[in-house]
Amino acid sequence: MTSTIDIQNGDLTDERVLRLLADHLDDMFATSPAESVHALDVSALAASGVTFWTIADGDDVLGCVALKELDPEHGELKSMRTDAAARGRGLGARLLEHVLAESRRRGYRRLSLETGSQDFFAPARALYAKYGFRETGPFGDYALDPHSVFMTLELA
């Protein structure tokens, strides 16, 4: 049987998606102080200005990502997560490529993100750097925080 990896708009009422998001938040709070956790909960992911996608293999939801519009030329990558059992399959790269394509389609000139500074987040930081993201200072409503790494990619 051939697997078909598919990225589509995420259903924030789907139990599989809710489990993935709960795991994401659990990991964020386990690795960072509460005041340094900037992950979006379900209600924030459903807000206007945020687009949420999942990546699935058949009926298995394996990951998710969101894109938040900060202004008409600047987007923020949010809630990027691959299920622990599915890591190492290139799904994070597929999700990131999807958001990059959508950001360019929308005409964004810049895409930024906040991630953790702890070792747990090193694979994510390496993936972002591989795609050209560079460390920068805080953007949007963020403040300087030793538990956060801010990265941006110029798309123009």
Rank of each mutant, 00 (worst) to 15 (best):
G137F: 15
H74L: 15
E35D: 13
H24R: 06
V65E: 04
A84R: 14
T115L: 03
D26V: 07
Y108N: 00
E35K: 10
P146V: 10
R125I: 02
I7E: 06
G75K: 01
A44W: 03
D59Y: 07
F120C: 02
V42Q: 13
R87N: 05
A44Q: 15
V99M: 09
S103Q: 08
Q118F: 13
A122K: 09
R106L: 13
V149Q: 00
D14C: 06
T82Y: 00
M151L: 08
E114A: 07
R109V: 00
E35V: 08
H38S: 04
L113R: 01
D59M: 02
K78N: 03
G49N: 05
F52W: 00
E114L: 10
L155M: 08
M151R: 01
I5R: 07
F133V: 09
Q8D: 09
K130W: 08
T31C: 09
Y131L: 06
A22F: 12
G107N: 12
R125G: 03
T152E: 10
L45N: 12
L21M: 02
A84E: 15
T2W: 05
T4P: 08
M151K: 07
A129S: 12
V65Q: 03
E69N: 07
H24K: 05
I7T: 11
R87G: 03
S3A: 14
R109M: 00
L153C: 11
A124M: 02
D141S: 14
G90H: 07
W53Y: 09
D23I: 06
S48M: 05
A46V: 11
P146N: 02
D71H: 05
R105F: 01
A156C: 01
L77M: 13
A101W: 04
S43Y: 09
